[in-house]
Design a protein around this nucleic acid. Structure first.
Length: 576
DNA sequence: CGGCATACG
DNA sequence: CGTA
DNA sequence: GCCG
């Protein structure tokens, strides 16, 4: 049974391991969700509060705090705003009355004593002292299932919290489209998938994209096999069922059989007529590919963000062989110690901790920058770090525009323990109708993150601080490079972050469109076209004959509009 | 033998 | 052409 | 490379 765990818009701050306020911790303290209202707090103060919250994780049996990206999800709100009028600019008064609103001192003192202190003593607004007292989460009674469950997201609450993937889907492993099958993250036939992946990458790098697509489909089928065969495939399986699987045609099937059967394979040697012995469980062609210098060079080139197979082949053709050759070719500055130098992007601060606006363009994530950042980009991102980034980003956004809802999508939502990047879909009731409102918010948000020193680069020259767009959009995305503040994470690594701003009517299409995996998305679109006469993209479902657009109101809506069974995000891992 | 996802910059 |  |  596969229970759904994270597709409501209110998963803002809910990783699978996060607790709701009603749950007990081993320490006896409840998890307290803290929101930081940034108005009247400078960047240094905010970073210090983040660090304090994070520091509690290292104290066993201590205070349990969780940074929270949205005030309505919070138990406690930290604020330096003391006037009702000013507060209402950032926070709905009805929500404020359901929270404990305290000064940052509450956090300092509570952390110092490793216990939640009495909120009333720290009330930020005299007018709300009573509510703050009443809503204070320090009560040690089970009835303290206080506040936040009641203030659940209404705008995007889609009523599909407890969907499960139909068992029927799990036995659908021979279906033609990966959006009809269940593809779990880990499959026991991993070796087969890895071998096929070598062939896929090779075909891709050599420009044979349709061949590569065939291998992708074969891999996607292999990933779905696990639920039908909860074990490694046997000879008997091969002889009966596997031969009927889609996308394992004559050529790929012979390689698959080779990989599984493993024992002997006959390659006709024209001269000696001697049968060659093939190593167990491997596809001979993969060995050739893996040891090819050209393959290794092309693969290394294409691993750089912004370099695809065409550019990789070009670089090879003009004599480049290593990424170090690329550094020379692209004039990447190298320090005395041999480490590539980043252009001087470090934000400058006033003594108050406010960033000095450079009024400059945001640096572009071009190939040169990507070369410098490649080592950091290669370091994977843990789930807790993804959540940390999300919380911080939403705290910033809700300070800029209160009331935003968001979902972490991409590999994180598919359950991957480590991510290469972070994708977040964001919406707000005010964005209905899209257009300039979305462009405006995206621009202001990225600009703010840049000025806060949280974003260092933006992909494809969208970095002009002042810039107008004429086009109408219900969805916009910003491909950025993000860094957690050094006070929050000493490594201060550059991470790739994709922000997708969607009109509310486009939200669920965007969530499905950005959850992936890549093959799952291609098959959704192919299924929609060839089987249903529909077009699916990340903003809507469109009927092809009259262009009528449909706006799904839940994730399940997307699937049912397309005539598909809902599949849990963790079973959409149709790629390796 | 034609099609293979769709959109954006 | 490259990225999602 | 595979499918209709």
């Amino acid at each position: 049974m596969y229970t759904r765990r994270s597709s409501s818009s209110s998963d803002r701050s809910s990783g699978p391991e996060s607790s709701s306020p009603g749950q007990y911790s081993p320490s006896g303290y409840h998890m307290i969700k803290v929101y930081i209202l940034q108005a009247k707090l400078d960047a240094t103060a905010v970073a210090e509060l983040y660090t304090l919250i994070k520091s509690c994780k290292d104290v066993p049996d201590g205070l349990r705090l969780q940074l929270c990206g949205n005030p309505s999800d919070a138990d406690v709100i930290l604020s330096n705003v003391h006037m009702r009028k000013r507060l209402e600019r950032h926070l709905d008064w009805d929500i404020a009355k359901q929270k404990a609103i305290v000064t940052p001192d509450w956090l300092h003192d509570s952390v110092a004593q490793q216990r939640p202190l009495n909120c009333a003593d720290y009330a930020a607004l005299g007018e709300l002292r009573e509510e703050t007292d009443k809503n204070c989460p320090d009560c040690d009674l089970p009835k303290c299932i206080c506040s936040s469950e009641s203030s659940k997201e209404s705008l995007l609450d889609n009523g599909t919290m407890n969907l499960i993937t139909s068992p029927h889907v799990s036995y659908n492993y021979a279906a033609r489209y990966s959006c009809q099958r269940a593809s779990p993250l880990v499959c026991p036939n991993q070796r087969l998938a890895n071998e096929l992946s070598v062939l896929r990458i090779h075909r891709d790098l050599e420009g044979k994209t349709v061949n590569a697509l065939s291998y992708e489909r074969a891999i996607a089928v292999s990933t779905g096999l696990r639920l039908a065969y909860p074990r490694v495939i046997t000879q008997a399986d091969l002889d009966t069922e596997v031969v009927h699987l889609p996308y394992l045609g004559e050529k790929i099937r012979s390689k698959v059989l080779l990989c599984f059967r493993g024992c002997y394979h006959y390659v006709n040697d024209a001269l000696t007529k001697i049968n060659e012995f093939i190593r167990f469980g491997r596809i001979e062609e993969c060995n050739t590919i893996r040891s090819s210098a050209r393959f290794l060079s092309l693969k290394a080139f294409a691993s750089i963000h912004g370099v695809g197979s065409t550019t990789a082949r070009h670089l090879y053709s003009i004599g480049l062989r290593t990424v170090e050759d690329m550094e020379q070719y692209y004039d990447v500055p190298i320090a005395d110690d041999g480490v590539p130098l980043l252009p001087n992007n470090e934000p400058k601060y006033t003594p108050n901790g406010k960033r000095i606006p450079t009024n400059d363009t945001i640096p572009d994530l071009d190939i040169k920058a990507a070369l410098v950042l490649r080592h950091e980009f290669a370091i994977s991102i843990s789930r807790s770090e993804v959540e940390e980034m999300h919380n911080l980003i939403m705290a910033e956004l809700n300070d800029l525009k209160p009331g935003c809802a968001s979902t972490i999508v991409g590999g994180y939502r598919r359950g991957k323990p480590e991510s290469n990047d972070v994708d977040i879909v964001i919406t707000h009731a005010d964005l209905r109708g899209g257009g300039e409102k979305i462009t405006g918010l995206r621009k202001r948000f990225v600009e703010r993150l840049y000025n806060r020193g949280l974003v260092s680069h933006v992909a494809r020259g969208a970095g002009f601080i002042a810039q107008d767009s004429f086009r109408w959009h219900s969805l916009e995305n910003a491909l950025t490079v993000f860094r957690l503040p050094a006070q929050v994470d000493a490594r201060h690594l550059h991470r790739r972050l994709d922000l997708i701003i969607a009109a509310p009517e486009a939200y669920w299409s965007a969530v499905v469109g950005w959850t992936g995996s890549k093959m799952f998305e291609r098959d959704l679109r192919l299924w929609a076209k060839t089987e249903k006469g529909l077009k699916f993209d990340s903003s809507a479902v469109t009927r092809r004959h009259d262009s009528k657009r449909f706006f799904p109101q839940s994730e399940n809506d997307v699937f049912s509009l397309l005539g598909l069974q809902w599949i849990d995000p963790t079973l959409r891992n149709a790629d390796i």
